[in-house]
Simulated scan of single mutants.
Amino acid sequence: MAKGDDLDPKGLIEESYKIEGISAPECRSIFLDWALSYQGVSVVGISALLARHGTGTDDHPMTITLREGLTASQTPTRRGGRRGRLAK
Protein backbone atom coordinates (compact mmCIF):
# COMPACT_ATOMS: atom_id res chain seq x y z
CA MET A 1 0.00 0.00 0.00
CA ALA A 2 1.36 3.41 -0.89
CA LYS A 3 2.01 5.97 1.80
CA GLY A 4 -0.45 8.82 1.96
CA ASP A 5 -0.13 12.47 2.88
CA ASP A 6 -0.79 14.55 6.01
CA LEU A 7 -4.54 14.11 5.56
CA ASP A 8 -4.45 10.34 5.06
CA PRO A 9 -1.07 9.29 6.52
CA LYS A 10 -1.34 5.58 5.73
CA GLY A 11 -3.40 5.97 2.56
CA LEU A 12 -6.21 3.98 4.20
CA ILE A 13 -9.14 6.09 3.08
CA GLU A 14 -7.92 6.32 -0.52
CA GLU A 15 -7.40 2.56 -0.68
CA SER A 16 -10.88 1.88 0.72
CA TYR A 17 -12.43 3.60 -2.29
CA LYS A 18 -10.47 1.26 -4.59
CA ILE A 19 -11.68 -1.97 -2.95
CA GLU A 20 -14.62 -3.46 -4.85
CA GLY A 21 -17.44 -4.75 -2.69
CA ILE A 22 -16.14 -3.25 0.54
CA SER A 23 -18.69 -3.42 3.34
CA ALA A 24 -19.77 -0.84 5.91
CA PRO A 25 -18.14 -2.70 8.85
CA GLU A 26 -14.85 -2.82 6.96
CA CYS A 27 -15.10 0.92 6.28
CA ARG A 28 -15.77 1.62 9.96
CA SER A 29 -12.67 -0.38 10.88
CA ILE A 30 -10.58 1.52 8.34
CA PHE A 31 -12.03 4.82 9.60
CA LEU A 32 -11.10 3.94 13.19
CA ASP A 33 -7.54 3.15 12.12
CA TRP A 34 -7.41 6.49 10.26
CA ALA A 35 -8.78 8.39 13.26
CA LEU A 36 -6.16 6.87 15.55
CA SER A 37 -3.30 7.85 13.23
CA TYR A 38 -4.56 11.29 12.13
CA GLN A 39 -2.68 14.14 13.82
CA GLY A 40 -5.11 17.01 13.16
CA VAL A 41 -8.59 18.02 14.23
CA SER A 42 -10.82 15.12 13.17
CA VAL A 43 -13.74 17.30 11.99
CA VAL A 44 -11.43 19.23 9.67
CA GLY A 45 -9.83 16.01 8.42
CA ILE A 46 -13.13 14.27 7.77
CA SER A 47 -14.45 17.32 5.90
CA ALA A 48 -11.33 17.39 3.76
CA LEU A 49 -11.58 13.66 3.03
CA LEU A 50 -15.20 14.09 1.97
CA ALA A 51 -14.19 16.95 -0.31
CA ARG A 52 -11.44 14.79 -1.80
CA HIS A 53 -13.26 11.47 -2.17
CA GLY A 54 -16.96 12.08 -1.57
CA THR A 55 -17.90 13.68 -4.87
CA GLY A 56 -19.89 11.24 -6.98
CA THR A 57 -19.60 8.44 -4.41
CA ASP A 58 -22.69 9.16 -2.31
CA ASP A 59 -23.60 5.48 -1.92
CA HIS A 60 -20.06 4.21 -1.17
CA PRO A 61 -19.80 2.75 2.36
CA MET A 62 -16.74 4.90 3.16
CA THR A 63 -18.54 8.10 2.17
CA ILE A 64 -21.43 7.11 4.43
CA THR A 65 -18.98 6.28 7.25
CA LEU A 66 -17.21 9.62 6.88
CA ARG A 67 -20.52 11.49 7.00
CA GLU A 68 -21.50 9.57 10.13
CA GLY A 69 -18.14 10.40 11.68
CA LEU A 70 -18.64 14.06 10.92
CA THR A 71 -22.15 14.04 12.40
CA ALA A 72 -21.14 12.07 15.49
CA SER A 73 -18.24 14.38 16.29
CA GLN A 74 -20.48 17.44 16.17
CA THR A 75 -23.14 16.17 18.58
CA PRO A 76 -21.56 15.21 21.92
CA THR A 77 -23.86 13.71 24.51
CA ARG A 78 -23.58 13.21 28.23
CA ARG A 79 -22.84 9.61 29.08
CA GLY A 80 -23.92 9.35 32.71
CA GLY A 81 -22.36 9.76 36.10
CA ARG A 82 -23.59 10.80 39.51
CA ARG A 83 -24.60 14.33 38.55
CA GLY A 84 -26.67 13.09 35.63
CA ARG A 85 -28.58 10.65 37.83
CA LEU A 86 -29.29 13.22 40.52
CA ALA A 87 -30.36 16.04 38.17
CA LYS A 88 -33.82 14.56 37.56
Rank of each mutant, 00 (worst) to 15 (best):
D58C: 05
E26A: 15
A35H: 05
R28M: 09
R83L: 10
H60Q: 04
G40L: 11
L50F: 04
S23C: 12
G54A: 06
P9V: 03
R83N: 12
T65V: 14
R79I: 05
L49F: 06
K88Q: 14
V41T: 14
I46L: 11
K88P: 05
M62I: 05
R28C: 07
A72G: 03
L7T: 03
S42H: 15
I46E: 02
C27R: 00
L66D: 01
E20R: 15
G84T: 07
L66G: 01
H60N: 08
A87H: 09
D59E: 12
F31S: 01
E68T: 06
R79K: 14
R67Y: 07
L49A: 03
T75K: 10
E26L: 09
V43Y: 14
Q39R: 15
E20W: 08
S42K: 15
D6Q: 12
D59G: 02
L32H: 13
L7R: 02
E20Q: 12
D58K: 12
G4W: 00
F31H: 00
L70W: 01
E26K: 15
P25I: 11
K18A: 13
A48G: 05
L7K: 04
Y38V: 00
A51F: 04
T77P: 01
H53R: 06
I22F: 08
E68W: 08
T55K: 13
A51W: 05
K3V: 08
K18P: 02
L32S: 14
E26F: 04
G80P: 03
L50E: 04
T57W: 01
T71W: 08
G45T: 04
R78Q: 12
I19Q: 14
E14H: 08
A72T: 05
L12K: 00
E26G: 03
V44D: 14
D5V: 07
D59R: 08
V41S: 13
V44Y: 11
E68K: 13
P61C: 06
G45F: 02
R28I: 05
